[in-house]
Design a protein around this nucleic acid. Structure first.
Length: 276
DNA sequence: CTGCATGTTAGGTT
DNA sequence: CAACCTAACATGCA
């Protein structure tokens, strides 16, 4: 659910709140969301200071004193909330972080328990192991490079966009929206697209991601930001979740179809599948 | 009751 | 190796 724009919104919120805070206490209520033992996790974190908050793909990275990093992946329903310590814990609260001389807590809440927190005590070297396989960031890869690597792939474009090793951060919502905007069928073979089409896709994707970040993300199910507010980009979705409704470009009914095991929404008139 | 849902990974097959 | 499929994870909702 949280894709690049939602994660970016969360990261910005966390950066505002967490910079220079020092963990005083970490409480783990559900150990399966950790890679480490809870004991190791809490004792390694306590006393460390938060020096930076970054995003890589759909991952949240807290840079800590001593060279460590706390990685958070929210998967489907994970949420990070920054709330007064006196707030009664909501259902599915699994980890609570308290800070020195601060009345608020950071809480990890996850209804479906798929989200993961992982502490990397990596030294010197840059790469965090958990992020090693991620593809380029959509905002960093140059247009020509995007065109080049896409045409190397003999597979449908939609599952390719969702492949985090190909491109980091794109999920089901924004893949469907970008393909609609570019007039490309989700099942179109990547290596059958010409440069003009791929440049259009590249710019559509960046434009949509940027607009969605500006709107604070899309709240289609459980997503809220760090302070609990919903995003507003769901109002601007043109295909995602709109099966049977009319295409805002041509009026034809939006269809839903499984592509690469994921439901995909598209307009059969604006997005015609062409033989490879 | 059944089926389905967002992300990711593991494991298997083609 | 690349591409592809399915199951699994846990819960809530239609």
């Amino acid at each position: 659910m949280p894709e690049l724009p939602e994660v970016e919104t969360i990261v910005r919120g966390l950066r505002e709140q967490l910079l220079n805070l020092r963990f005083s206490k970490v409480e783990v209520g559900l150990k399966k969301c950790l890679k480490d033992s809870p004991k190791n996790f809490t004792s390694s974190l306590e006393g460390k200071k938060i020096l930076g908050v970054e995003r890589r793909g759909k991952n949240i990275i807290l840079r800590l004193s001593g060279g460590a990093a706390l990685l958070v992946h929210l998967r489907m329903t994970g949420r990070l909330r920054f709330v007064p310590a006196l707030t009664p814990p909501e259902k599915h609260t699994h980890v609570i972080f308290s800070f020195e001389n601060h009345p608020y807590q950071l809480r990890f809440v996850d209804q479906r328990q798929f989200g993961r927190l992982c502490l990397e005590t990596n030294q010197a070297g840059e790469g965090l192991d958990a992020l090693a396989d991620l593809g380029p960031e959509p905002f960093e890869i140059p247009a020509k490079e995007f065109v080049r690597i896409t045409r190397l792939k003999h597979r449908a474009i939609k599952p390719l966009l969702l492949d985090q090793r190909f491109l980091a951060g794109v999920g089901n919502i924004y893949a469907d929206e970008a393909l609609h905007q570019a007039g490309i069928h989700p099942r179109q073979q990547a290596d059958s697209l010409d440069e003009k089409n791929l440049l259009l896709l590249y710019h559509s994707l960046k434009r949509i991601l940027k607009k969605a970040i500006g709107a604070g993300g899309s709240s289609v199910r459980t997503y809220v930001n760090v302070s609990g507010s919903t995003g507003s980009f769901q109002k601007y979705l043109r295909v995602y979740g709109r099966e049977g409704k009319d295409c805002k470009t041509c009026g034809l009914s939006i269809v839903r179809e499984r592509v690469g095991g994921r439901s995909s929404f598209y307009c059969p008139r604006c997005q015609v599948l062409r033989p490879a």
